[in-house]
Design a protein around this nucleic acid. Structure first.
Length: 353
DNA sequence: CCTGATGATTAAAG
DNA sequence: CTTTAATCATCAGG
């Protein structure tokens, strides 16, 4: 794992051992190395080169390019590079020690899971749609008018989804762009100052972490948006919608034609549900069954509680079914008294007032 | 507003 | 589990 000197060219790493200060530069003097009386000149050179480094960012691009070239060709450059390498070698230990292993952020995982569950992330129209369908079926009813809210919810969810994905992609792209930019920069700079691949990697990590924290903000706000939408939708769910006329008729018809035993079997419920829920097609059966069960439960108890109040209704449906039966069976013989209100009398549930 | 109708929810009972 | 009975919350109409 110790490959960091690859970019450092291993120029005399331990030069300074020769003694005091910049004397270490001497062995690598480019031109012959006449360590003579011109120490001040060398100092000046170093000051010069440092100055150039410090001001390089202030220049315009062309100017900087030219200056960089000059810098690279400067006679003191290798020596300075070596010194920098050496200093680096001393400090890199501390850097290496501070290698943070980041555990997967639990909060991020939570957000990811939620987005996945809500159908914002992950494959198109997944589990989130199921929740939506459940609530939708509950709202509306067996009738035809629930699709509006449902599609509203779906539309808003997919809107959130779309925004989320475009933003995420944008961040991803920006991150990649920025990363390659920085890497190019660092590689370029590695000609002037020692930069190990490890450090580049570290820098990339830092960038990625930064961007992923931005992404986390995005995820968080997306989660919030979904939650708000969801809570609003659930509120809407609490708002009771009456069934439409047709559904009520179908249910009543069954109820009054089975007054003696108004307990539809699972199959019968399913059948009724299918008949009533014309628009709720998307395979959300069981919820609708529950709705049918609710209806029959309410109907039974309320009928029993006050038979008188329902008498008229009972007569009506009884008549209707009677008419239907006669129409189907034979040609209009009003044999079985068209209005047979007293069929209600045999209602099995009537035990107490 | 008020009120009855009605779908949903809940605890209790079978 | 299903059903009952009570209750809640909302709707629809006066």
């Amino acid at each position: 794992m110790d490959e960091q000197p690859r970019l450092m060219h291993a120029h005399g790493v331990a030069m300074a051992r020769h003694g005091h200060g910049h004397a270490g530069l001497a062995p690598h003097m480019p031109d012959g190395g006449s360590t003579g009386p011109d120490g001040d000149a060398r100092k000046q050179d170093i000051g010069d080169i440092l100055q150039q480094i410090m001001t390089i960012t202030d220049q315009s691009l062309d100017e900087a390019q030219a200056r960089k070239h000059a810098l690279n060709c400067h006679r003191m450059k290798p020596a300075l590079f070596n010194v920098l390498c050496e200093i680096k070698e001393k400090t890199v230990l501390s850097i290496r020690g501070a290698q943070e292993e980041e555990p997967p952020d639990p909060q991020l995982m939570r957000l990811d899971n939620m987005l996945l569950a809500e159908g914002v992330a992950g494959p198109e129209k997944g589990g989130g749609a199921a929740a939506a369908a459940a609530a939708a079926a509950a709202t509306g009813g067996i009738g035809a008018d629930n699709s509006a809210e449902h599609s509203d919810y779906r539309a808003k969810l997919s809107q959130i989804r779309q925004i989320y994905h475009t933003e995420l992609e944008k961040y991803e792209q920006a991150c990649n762009e920025f990363t390659t930019h920085v890497m190019n920069l660092l590689r370029e700079q590695s000609r002037t100052r020692p930069i190990s691949p490890k450090e580049i990697e570290r820098m990339v990590n830092i960038i990625h972490r930064k961007f992923s924290s931005i992404q986390m903000q995005l995820k968080q706000s997306t989660c919030e948006a979904v939650m708000i939408l969801r809570s609003r939708f659930l509120d809407a769910r609490r708002k009771r919608r009456n069934f439409n006329k047709q559904a009520t008729e179908i249910l009543n018809e069954y109820f009054y034609s089975h007054l003696s035993n108004p307990y539809p079997s699972e199959e019968a419920k399913e059948e009724l549900a299918k008949k009533c829920s014309i628009t709720v097609s998307q395979g959300w059966g069981s919820i609708i069954i529950v709705i049918v069960s609710n209806w029959f439960g309410n109907k039974r108890i309320r009928y029993k509680k006050n038979i008188g109040k329902f008498q008229e209704e009972a007569n009506m449906y009884a008549a209707r079914t009677a008419v239907n039966a006669t129409n189907v069976s034979a040609h209009g013989s009003q044999a079985n008294s068209p209005s047979t209100p007293n069929s209600a009398g045999e209602y099995a549930l009537v035990h107490s007032g």
